[in-house]
Design a protein around this nucleic acid. Structure first.
Lengths: 238, 238
DNA sequence: CGCTTGCTGACATGGACCTGAAGGGCCAGA
DNA sequence: TCTGGCCCTTCAGGTCCATGTCAGCAAGCG
């Protein structure tokens, strides 16, 4: 069976989105998986067709990320088999930019969307949310913290008075991280890894800088420092 | 049964239009289906008469696109059978330019409209909207964003003061894409692919150019840039 | 009081994005 | 057929902004 990680019931009790990632490329798979896990999704990673089908037989997924070029066969088979048994689990196809026919075949075989490699992880997240929302499942509608309303699926924050806050990519990443795991202490290193997906080690106080910038925009009181460990956001209604 | 794809309830909760495409030509079918799916319709594709009738028996469609020349019989049979059982589902016939008699027979048998191959996908979309509107079903009446009223089915935008905005084809394509998925972030690549139906990869900043022009016509604030990902339109009333 | 840890303003840099302008294609009308 | 106008696409220059880094200061903690 494939690698399993993430999700569980840590996220304030919300059901996580179960994702099956079918991808043979180690690097890309790593990046996608770690990113998705950080977003609070539960990810199984299958590196070939056999594995993928074993997973599908065992678990009911909320979303499938499907690379079409696999070592032991074409990913289309998986998709077709799925649809043949009237399984409507949303599927997002991952293809290289020159595999146009793959894309078309994929959509026609019942895929819901596709992404062209190399893709931005932010865009992946947007598509995941779009598809998940379309199926009405697993959306986290809103997180309310203090006078902030945070919409993870829309990458949006508003204040109670309706004011929209403009956040940069990194700022949003930090805020999302903290708000999804609200009431829990989030380690500095965890945040750092969320910012610099995999590898790219950084050696300065970037996290502190972004927390600072966030506090300026959100209001000082929203992010609490836990000395020596990290940060946390507390929502009063628990 | 036929291939099924697309639609669901993605368009802000509006029911999608269920289309049955009856067409044996692979290429044409691909083009029509992918285009329609992109417009948010739900498409079943039957490649022969048997298949088509199986679909019709199982599902209540909002529209049927019917090629008359099929491998296992004449599409007219399908249409006649349909009307014989007083099914009023709108039907658009697809014929080659030299099949004049087909067209006449088709209309006499109760078709609502016809298209001559090869046809422009934009024209197809227009006819689909026209027929759908005529039947009062499935039209997205209006999308209101800021002081704009957008009528997707009529390819029309007005400002609150009644002023009518003139948009070019590409400008409209971008606006439609963004307004139909309002409040969601739409990737640049997604918009690009909506402009250049599949494949025709473009390597310049066309999308940016059209966004720029749109902003000039619509007002700066209407389209928001999400750096590194794409664009979005936000409608305040949610 | 001294040490560690965290905060924040400033700044250089690169990249993402915007937009005006130019050239070409297509179509309608002369 | 020619012409003008509209639209599309590309390109280049410019602007704006996100980012990472650092240094100096503040705050906790022994």
């Amino acid at each position: 069976m494939a690698e399993r990680e993430g999700g569980s019931d840590e996220l304030g009790g919300d059901e996580p989105l179960r994702i099956l990632l079918v991808e043979d490329d180690q690097t890309l798979g790593d990046a996608v998986k770690t990113h998705a896990v950080r977003q609070g999704h539960a990810v199984d990673w299958a590196k070939d067709q056999d594995n993928a089908e074993a997973c599908l037989a065992a678990v009911q997924y909320g979303l499938i990320l499907l690379d079409l070029r696999l070592p032991d066969g074409h990913g289309l088979n998986i998709l077709k088999a799925l649809r043949a048994r009237r399984d409507k689990t949303p599927v997002i196809i991952l293809t290289a930019h020159d595999q146009v026919s793959d894309r078309i075949e994929g959509l026609n075989a019942g895929a819901d969307d596709y992404l062209v490699k190399p893709f931005d992880l932010g865009e992946l997240e947007a598509r995941i949310h779009a598809v998940a929302r379309r199926y009405g499942a697993h959306q986290v509608p809103m997180i309310e913290i203090g006078d902030l309303q945070i919409f993870p699926s829309e990458r949006r924050v508003t204040r109670s008075n309706g004011e929209q806050l403009a956040l940069s990519a990194r700022e949003w990443a930090v805020l999302e991280m903290l708000s999804v795991r609200r009431n829990a202490i989030v380690g500095k290193s965890q945040i750092e890894e969320a910012l610099y997906s995999f590898g790219a080690e950084i050696e300065s106080n970037t996290v502190e800088v972004y927390v600072s910038r966030l506090r300026r925009k959100l209001g000082r009181a929203t992010i609490e420092t836990v000395r020596g460990i990290g940060y946390r956001m507390v929502s009063d209604e628990r």
